[in-house]
Amino acid sequence: MGKVVVVTSGKGGVGKTTSTAALGAAVARTGKKVALVDFDVGLRNLDLIMGAERRVVFDLVNVIQGTAKLSQALIRDKRLETLYLLPASQTRDKDALTEEGVAEVIGRLRQVFDYVFCDSPAGIERGAQLAMRFADEAVIVTNPEVSSVRDSDRIIGLLDARTMKAEQGEHIAKHVLVTRYDAARAARGEMLSIDDVLEILSTPLLGIIPESQDVLRASNLGAPVTLSDPTNSAAKAYLEAARRLEGEDLPVVVPFERKGFLDRLLGRRAA
């Protein structure tokens, strides 16, 4: 039985889809069979980030409504044969998803794949709740910024209350993935530090993805950053986060920026 991981955040634009693609591809690189499921019905983007936008024929809603078979809707990645994508519908609205339908699809994916990553839509409404509903684990994508941290806290509350596991009295494993981290700004006290975020959310850390031009470059090219150029700092951070997700005990190194001469002169202190 495969593991179902929801990638969620509450707030939009923090990097859920990018992280789903990067983590999924990183896990698939190790030979595990991975399915990425886009739950953002009406605003799908995982297909674009994966570079599969022109190969979408059927989608999650078609499978749920019985107009396509699951095997017809799954798109196999051209670079990695262990990586698959189940796109969201672009034309329907979010009400096209039913809990029974999602349960059925996730249940069948779980039998075939080692990992099922559910890319949640932003918000805390129905779509986001269905994306997390059958998850075993959650990756909470957070930017070191007040509104993102607040929304992450809200999502953590929902994960502990509204997931199937939580309702059955089981524990749902939660991990915080800090994205767009700027070590220089954090060192100058201009950005919440990793310690701040972890202390406030009191949830273990999966990884720290530095702010990087390579992430935008990867999405321009339609390739997960962990496949397009696995040597850059963001890709490395995602690869390490994926290993932790698979259970490896790998310490997280907080990116460090040496203070510049001017910072020293002006006496700017880290918070």
Partner: peptide, 27 residues
């Protein structure tokens, strides 16, 4: 005179206060 008050500690304090309240009233 050259020291600029850093904003991250302010962010941390505001969040801690707010979330303490929001968690209590949750549910």
């Amino acid at each position: 005179l050259f020291k600029r008050r850093t904003s991250a500690p302010v962010a941390r304090e505001r969040l801690q206060l707010l979330l303490a309240y929001e968690r209590r009233s949750r549910g």
